[in-house]
Amino acid sequence: MRTYLDFEKPIAELDNKLADMRRLAEESTIDVSAATAALESGIAKLRQEIFDNLTRWQRVQLSRHPDRPYTYEYIQLMCDEFIELHGDRQVRDDPAMIGGFANLNGQGIMIIGQQKGRNTKQRQHRNFGMPNPEGYRKALRLMKLAEKFNKPIITLIDTPGAFPGLEAEERGQGEAIARNLKEMFMLKVPVICIVIGEGASGGALGIAIGDRVMMLENTWYSVISPENCSTILWRSWDYKEQAADAMKLTARDMKANKLIDEIVPEPLGGAHLDHVGMAAILKGVILDHLGQLSQLSPEERINQRIDKFCDMGVVVE
């Protein structure tokens, strides 16, 4: 069963009608091909219309769609081989952050990302994609490994935030993220970061310092989730839509404000409708940028990476 979001309800109705029509056709000899074709094009048109006019909050909802591809799916769909590597060598392995060497079009790469779960058990195991400090330290360990063997790094960002727990604090959540930010600036190999779902605050940024930072079309990336922003500034959960608008957290907004480099288009209706298509688009984009970045020397990449982030911010002199 597909999951429909609130604003997709009109599509759901037509989808059901189409399914009924097809069932009817199977059970009888009536030719409904003309009718189904008309209905299909009607659905496509409706979908186009809805997706052309998405609000920011609707995009936030899409970024969290339970059928959306997660890091593992992208790795499986984009890469020929993947050898997962575990552990931070200090405390434990964090299942909310995964990574390993992979083969992308014959090229060895390191790919790292937050991982969410599909069902209740998996979600708990993956801690809803909220890494502990071990996750960030594992990510850094793998990035250093990639640097050692001169392999480019791809990070996929999809997290509602770094985990705000007791043990996370004890083991230095803040320090772990801070160290990643600093170290990632100095990585000699190309680094490409893509927000594939939710990009919440420091928990996202902790693996998102790259030569290229991109967002899929229906994702968000900001300093806090709209719900939490609403709770703090409006003192109520109910203003999340206003908060989403105020924070300008969509890919389009972030690109307009020069806080990301590029928007990666999603198939019509969102990445969740076409995992294979989405992965193919993303793979193409990654290969394209890897080609560009390989033309630069490590020093050039590092300098450009630093300059890009240092230019971010608007002040009145």
């Binding site: 930010l181 600093k182 600036f185 922003c229 924070m247 972030m254 404000n257 806080l259 630093i306 240092c310």
Partner: peptide
């Protein structure tokens, strides 16, 4: 922490300051 009223811009100040500190460290 970061200032919500500058949202994405505030977030990127974490990156900016860390970049400068990396240079200072070097």
């Amino acid at each position: 922490g970061a200032r919500m009223m500058e949202a994405g811009f505030s977030l990127m100040q974490m990156a900016k300051t860390s970049a400068k500190l990396a240079l200072l460290s070097e």
